[in-house]
Simulated assay, not measured.
Amino acid sequence: MPGGRLTRQDRLLIADRLAAGHGYAEIARELDRPTSTISREVTRNGGRTGYRAEHAQLATGSRARRRRDSPAAESGPAIDAYGRDRAAVRQYAEHFAETMVETGLPRMASRVLSCLYTADAASLTAAELVRELAVSPASISKAVNYLESLELVRREPAPAQRHEHYLIAEDIWIQAWRTSARANANWAGTARKGAELFDPATPAGRRLERMSRFFQQLSDDMSGEGPDPEVAQDVAVILAALVHAARPLTSAQLATALDWPADRTTTALSTAKSYELFTDPLTVRTVAPDTYVVTVTRLTEAQRHALTG
């Protein structure tokens, strides 16, 4: 029945479709259920890679028995202190965690971060996280240690209490941004060492050298060392001008044609050359002193001949 409880056969179908790479929306349409129902079912039972139909069936029965036997099941309100639907809040927290999982964050770390982020309390203890997520203390400890290493969560001792409290860093998303910038810089450094080892003149060396420049550029941009938006716009104009001219031009000729100051033209040209991995398939080349032309990459000689012949 649409909207009813998932059956064992429903869960077997979900497991089969997940293994085949189907998305939540596809599975939901096949079962005539809301996509959120499938997302919630998979998230609370191991996620895309860990979902098992029989385990999910047993776990659902166990949760139902705990709710039935709990005193809160008889008198607990469905609305929290702020007038929000508890089920909707929990569903959102699960969806929030699943979104982080899809970006590469480990599942338990995602669930802990989601729980902390959606809690009205300023912080939560390990015991509160264990109770809220229904997992072991060891799982919480491992997830918090991982999040601490990324500087996304910190722990503080509670005054006059033995328990530590976990809370989200005030600048959590800035910290995440910085962590990504550092990771890109590490990729760039590793690829640069490989390029030096293999020699940039070899195919492997060229590949690693391009990879190094790509990740270094990403790291610089994320660290605030890349070009500002106005320079990026100027690069696009320079590329368009050289494409339109279809012939080599000096920086002075470009400055005159675009009615730009010389330093603005020079900055745009040098930026375009340093960002060629991002302007691909258009690349600014120097064909003579202070003379530039746009070339198109990605085409073989045979393809070029076929297009112009």
Rank of each mutant, 00 (worst) to 15 (best):
V144F: 03
A158D: 14
G189F: 02
A195K: 01
P137Q: 10
G189C: 02
S136G: 04
L208W: 01
Q175I: 01
R206A: 02
A160V: 15
H163I: 13
A143P: 08
R192C: 11
I140R: 03
I174M: 02
E196P: 04
K193P: 00
R192H: 12
S141I: 00
R192W: 10
R207S: 05
E196C: 12
S149I: 00
P203I: 01
R207P: 00
W173V: 11
S180A: 13
Q161K: 15
A181L: 02
E132S: 14
F198V: 06
P157R: 13
A138N: 08
Q175E: 14
A183L: 10
P200C: 03
V153C: 02
R162C: 02
A169P: 00
L147M: 03
L167Y: 12
E148Q: 12
N184K: 10
E148Y: 02
T190W: 11
R206T: 03
E148T: 06
E164L: 15
W187Q: 12
V144Y: 01
P159E: 11
G194D: 14
R162E: 14
S149K: 08
E148P: 01
T190Q: 15
R207T: 06
A181C: 06
L147I: 04
V135N: 07
Q161H: 14
E148L: 00
I172C: 08
Q175D: 12
R155S: 12
A158K: 12
H165I: 10
K193H: 14
P137S: 06
E156I: 06
R206Y: 04
A185F: 06
S139T: 09
P157N: 09
N184Y: 09
F198C: 07
R206H: 06
R131D: 15
A191R: 05
P159D: 13
Q175N: 15
R178H: 11
E156C: 04
E164H: 13
Q161D: 14
Y166L: 13
E209I: 00
L152G: 01
R192P: 04
V135A: 10
E148D: 04
E196M: 14
F198W: 07
F198H: 07
W187E: 13
I174G: 00
E164V: 11
P157D: 11
D171P: 04
V153M: 07
L147R: 03
R206S: 08
R154E: 10
V144S: 05
Y146V: 01
A143Q: 06
